[in-house]
């Protein structure tokens, strides 16, 4: 593997047990994503799209196979180590924003810093991140006082606040109308351009996929030949 590969998966297999039946969600997937790349992952439902996203985001462990994230083998890490990897290397953007509704935008953005154990400069870093997504005037607002697009911006600020190696975006525009969706996409692409953060977008929307440099297509737990 080379230093430019931020993600390298080899022969990734994931088997779920649904009662007595074993379901193979991934049947041996291998690919490489380079630092700074913008990649979309597409596929029909049941293709293993969400499973690969959970693996890449270190939310789950593969049944077998290897996964190097930023040069570190994470496939066999313990729960707390995985939590630490998620905290430092991965920024998540969800379809439904997933903000703490009782807390201010700043607090929400600060949350990963808190779990990182950072004591000082948290507020400043969170405010920088909010400025980067164009929310300098909404820092003390709560999610209920923000529009959908603004909420997703807060979520993006939260994803970049720890300067992660990759941003995992799961249908980031799925809950937004097309105009706001375009704004959010261009924000994500700009962040990639300005900061060089690797961007991985899981989507079923071809117009989103068209804006990425590369598309990884999945079908029945296998890579579809490009």
């Amino acid at each position: 593997m080379t230093a430019d590969n931020v993600i390298e998966v080899r022969d990734l297999v994931k088997t779920y047990k649904m009662g007595e039946v074993e379901v193979q969600a991934l049947r041996g997937v291998s690919f490489v994503i380079q630092r700074g790349e913008v990649v979309s992952i597409m596929g029909p439902s049941g293709s293993g799209k969400s499973t690969i996203m959970n693996m890449l985001g270190c939310l789950d462990r593969p049944t077998s196979g290897e996964y190097y994230l930023d040069g570190v083998e994470v496939a066999k890490m313990a729960d707390d180590q995985l939590a630490s990897v998620r905290n430092r290397k991965v920024g998540f953007v969800f379809q439904s924003f997933n903000l703490l509704s009782r807390q201010t935008a700043t607090f929400n953005v600060e949350l990963p810093l808190r779990y990182a154990g950072a004591m000082e400069g948290r507020r400043a870093k969170a405010e920088d991140a909010l400025r980067a997504v164009g929310l300098e005037n909404r820092m003390t607002h709560r999610p209920t006082e923000l529009s959908g697009g603004q909420q997703q911006r807060v979520a993006i600020a939260r994803a970049i606040v720890n300067n992660p190696a990759i941003i995992m975006a799961d249908e980031p525009t799925g809950n937004l109308d097309s105009r706001v969706g375009r704004e959010i996409m261009s924000l994500l692409l700009n962040l990639n351009k300005d900061r060089g953060t690797t961007l991985i977008i899981v989507t079923h929307d071809p117009s989103i996929a068209d804006q990425t440099q590369r598309v990884i297509r999945l079908r029945d737990g296998l890579l579809e030949a490009a």
Binding site: L59, D80, S84, N87, F92, L100, L111, P112, Y115, R158
Partner: peptide
């Protein structure tokens, strides 16, 4: 549950 999931995704350990 969702909040807990989110916190874990953001790096909360079991102890947190």
């Amino acid at each position: 549950t969702r909040e807990i999931g989110l916190r874990k995704a953001l790096g909360a350990r079991r102890r947190d």
